[in-house]
Simulated scan of single mutants.
Amino acid sequence: MRRVNTDVVGDKPVRNDAGEMSMSEEAKQQAWFEHYKRLLNVEFEWDPGHLSDKPPLEGPPIPITIEMVKKAIAEMKTGKAPGPSGVVVEMMRAAGDSSAIMLHDLAMAIIRRGTTDAIFVVRQLHEKYLAVNERLYMAFVDLEKAFDRVPRQVIWWALRKLGVEEWIVKLVQKLGRIPMCHTGVGSNSIHCKGCKHWVHKKCSSLKHLKEDPNYRCPKCLGTARPIDGRPQKEVQVGTDKLEVVASFCYLGDMLSAAGGCVLSTITRVKTAWNKFRELMPILSSRHLSYKTRGRLYSTYVQITMLYASETWPLPKPDLRLGQNDRAMVRQICRVEPEDMASVRSSELLARLGIDDLDAILREKRLRWFGHVARSSGAINNVFNMKQAF
């Protein structure tokens, strides 16, 4: 008899929903897919028979018009208490067409502005407190788990019952697509015996990952590296203890306890590359002209990279944004690595018919400054807040 040793190569196996061990990479991805599919699709018990049939409203999106605003004002109930603005329905009706025009302009500005106002207010508060070395705590309430348990069919039925057009319903449906974890927890991680959490290699303080049933992470051992800008790990609010984190994603923008916009630029670059890879077959197609590809790139990729950039505290142009933007432009124009030294970026931008990223960012920041200077309410209050604490 001869004894032969067999080397086990690869990551640790994953147990699927059936309790079986998944050994291959495809089987492990399928196991994680089934896990997240079950996790993100747990709904409350409900009876589909109670929902009446509501046909979808097909057709192109209808723009907001002044006539629609007038109709909405006419259907509003009178005798209601005013909101924070102090404006009641009777005042809007008495103003006639001028109030409808003002409300129409306000609605269009909100659609164009999106969430940038809220991001600006949070960033201004953060930077002003950091300037005087004062602590600022912001509590974010996450209602995602509560909304995730609402039955999807009930949401679609409610939207159609309210007369929401079908293109908007389909847009909301796409927001609830099930994510697929390709390099999820367990593929490059080790399990901690103390806190029972998976710890990635870069945070495990290990040079080489190997199975260790007695492994304890640096956090359990009390040797975790302190995070810059985080004065303490938790704060007491009444009877509850809230965790203090080093960074937080707020409306798509990354906020860091240490201030600045380094995390934001890194996140936006990663998001832009994901969008660029999705559109790569179109952006590199020889059947489209350079001008068409440039418009597509500017509309879908550049706008993703510069999301909320007008609120960033940038003392000088960020090199990370410019370098990644030029790398994408070279790929669109099919510039070979050996030709990069001889082809200027300005020539490629002119070929695509787009502006330099620094010029776009400068224009966005100047336009935003004008918006802030003319604004009132929360934006004006936080912008003119005195740093006297």
Rank of each mutant, 00 (worst) to 15 (best):
N5Y: 06
D7Y: 07
V9G: 01
N16V: 08
D53F: 07
P55I: 07
A81Q: 11
P82E: 07
A95V: 01
D97L: 08
A100C: 11
D105V: 02
V141S: 06
K145I: 04
R152D: 06
Q153F: 02
H182L: 10
C192M: 05
G194D: 12
D212T: 01
P218W: 05
P218A: 10
C220I: 00
R225D: 07
P231V: 08
P231R: 12
V235S: 07
T239F: 10
D240P: 01
V244D: 03
D253W: 02
M254Y: 09
S264N: 15
W273H: 13
R277A: 09
E278I: 08
L279I: 11
R286G: 10
V301E: 01
T304S: 15
T304R: 09
M305T: 00
A308G: 14
P313Q: 10
P315V: 04
D318H: 13
Q323F: 02
R330W: 09
P337Q: 04
S346F: 03
L348V: 09
L349F: 08
E363V: 04
K364W: 05
R365D: 03
L366H: 05
R367V: 04
F369N: 13
R374E: 15
G377I: 09
N380E: 13
K386L: 09
Q387Y: 03
A388Q: 08
